[in-house]
Write a protein that binds this DNA or RNA. Structure first.
Lengths: 205, 205
DNA sequence: GTCTATATTCAGATAGAC
DNA sequence: GTCTATCTGAATATAGAC
């Protein structure tokens, strides 16, 4: 590798720090000072690299928002049975969120603050075609009589609700179910199978 | 009524304004100035009544958080079949959120900011016994053989995920499904039946 | 590119008149 | 109780030396 030991340039250190701070605290709650501290530099340098807090945030949001709905086209394009595809999507998605537990709340929170119309626009552009593909898959299986008649849109919403919501509600779930972080993580691992089964049981004829 | 025309005291006007602003923008994003403007008074008066932004927020959060998981004991205590109870809970809950679409995101966002341990404590105290009751209901039906063997905790999580998540994800759903606010609202009305059916189909033997 | 020091802006909070 | 005016502190942003 020519591009050597210094795989952490200052810019990358800033981005890494900003990612953590913004995702944990949101745009409003984040402090440039904390980002600077985490990156091991000073505030002035942040502005040297990214000009303003908003600009820096934009970079982080754009790179992050794209991950919220990953490109499942590959899975959907295969000729496996629909149930296998759902299994794969659910498992992959829950795994993704286990690795980035703050991801859904971060993106959805910021999307809900309607100022920054830019963000919505960006999301629109990013819209990959997986929903379309998913709808086609579902409609085909309904026609074939493999699954019940169900609105594809609602089914897709159901799938992602079941995967993502528990992580958003984690603190509340912890209290209501009286479980600690470790038990929570264990439950989320379980959910890969439980959610898949739940969905399939519901739609299979 | 003795307690007359003036059912909007200054304090109530402040609370109403604060509710709107905090719920829409969160603690960090809210501005005392905006609350004062909405209440038709000035900032000084806010402090006269509530001393600080944090104190005012606490009042709003506490009154709001109690609504996130309503007291479904009455429903659960009846002797109707479990499926009817689920139907009622789902319908009531979705209706509740339709009326307060920002409620879930507001409460869950603030709960996720771990500073303000007080909030978590409060939630703990508020914990009504509906989860316990719900678990008992489910376990009984499993024993009776009415529904499949399923983890009650996961089932409860599933139910609330399916109800609440779509509202949190509304902006994203709007973009991905290319629907406007009216269509969204219509979908959410539909969901009362769709979610109930989805759940029951999944657990019935 | 990176730092220290400083400017600027903004928002929460208080003082004091009425 | 309610207001205007002001203070204070915090956070973003910039100037300028190295």
């Amino acid at each position: 590798m020519v591009n050597k030991i210094k795989d952490t340039t200052t810019e990358e250190k800033i981005l890494e720090a900003a990612r953590k701070v913004f995702i944990e605290r949101g745009l409003d709650g984040a402090r440039m000072q904390e980002i600077a501290d985490k990156a091991g530099i000073n505030k002035a340098l942040l502005h040297y690299y990214f000009r303003s807090k908003d600009k820096l945030f934009e970079v982080i949001f754009k790179e992050t928002a794209g991950n919220l709905f990953p490109k499942f086209e590959m899975i959907l394009n295969s000729d496996k049975p629909l149930f296998d595809k759902i299994d794969e999507i659910v498992s992959n998605y829950i795994d993704l969120i286990i690795k980035n537990p703050y991801l859904p709340l971060f993106v959805l929170s910021e999307m809900n603050k309607s100022r920054n119309l830019q963000l919505a626009n960006f999301f629109e552009m990013q819209r990959n075609k997986f929903v379309e593909k998913f709808v086609q898959n579902i409609e085909k299986e309904i026609k074939k009589g493999v699954i019940k008649k169900i609105s594809p849109a609602h089914l897709i919403i159901n799938i992602f609700s079941l995967c993502a919501f528990p992580f958003i509600a984690k603190p509340v779930i912890g209290i209501l179910l009286e479980i600690d972080d470790l038990q929570f993580k264990y439950m989320m691992e379980q959910r890969k199978k439980i959610v898949t089964d739940f969905i399939i049981a519901s739609i299979k004829k």
